[in-house]
Amino acid sequence: MSDRPVDDPIIRLENVSKHYVRGHQRVEVLHSLSVDVERGDFLALMGPSGSGKTTLLNLIGGLDRPSAGSVTVCGQRLETLSSGGLAAWRARHVGFIFQFYHLLPVLTAAKNVELPLLLTRLNAAQRARHVEAALAIVGLSDRARHKPGELSGGQQQRVAIARALVADPELIVCDEPTGDLDRDTADQVLGFLRELADLGKTIVMVTHDPKAADYATHRLHLDKGQLVEAVGRDGHRA
């Protein structure tokens, strides 16, 4: 790993295929797909429903394994890791944001944000400082003691963003992070993601929404298991 140049892509997919077997049926989802993503990119992954966006995101986030090909993320070939090794790798390198927030309803915002830190060696005071900082970034310091049920959808998603970034991962993957939010709230959440990208985080975001994709620096279109169009820097970053 040490001999890799720093400007190596943070994500490299090489001839990645993925199929599911359902009964006797084989569902081909991704066909021999190759792509690189550079550090600091904000990538929007688009495509029709069922095109395999979530599947691809799961491969990048180390939640699933390809049927063939190689996935290298943050300098690690994921197929070489055991399930426990993969879990530890995710804890170190990746933050996750979902469409339906997936906060634990019984825990306060602060305790939800703290979850990834439980897997680190930080002590209680250090964890509390990190949680505070993460909640401050998403502008929810005053809601730390609220439970998800007492927060609006947008606020819950901001808590989820705080949770995704609290352990300072290099990569943040989001599956339709604004799919359940109204326009204004979505813009706010996307603004945060854009800020994170500007701070040097790499973000891969699945979205249906072209307006959401406008916040990204790059777009990738998936159709019938293929990357049909790859658009370079679209100028939004300038």
Binding site: S83, G84, W89, R90, R92, F96, H102
Partner: peptide
């Protein structure tokens, strides 16, 4: 189930 899946996603091991 979804909450436990989220814990695993975050990096909690099976054990």
């Amino acid at each position: 189930v979804p909450e436990l899946a989220v814990l695993k996603t975050i990096g909690f091991r099976d054990g």
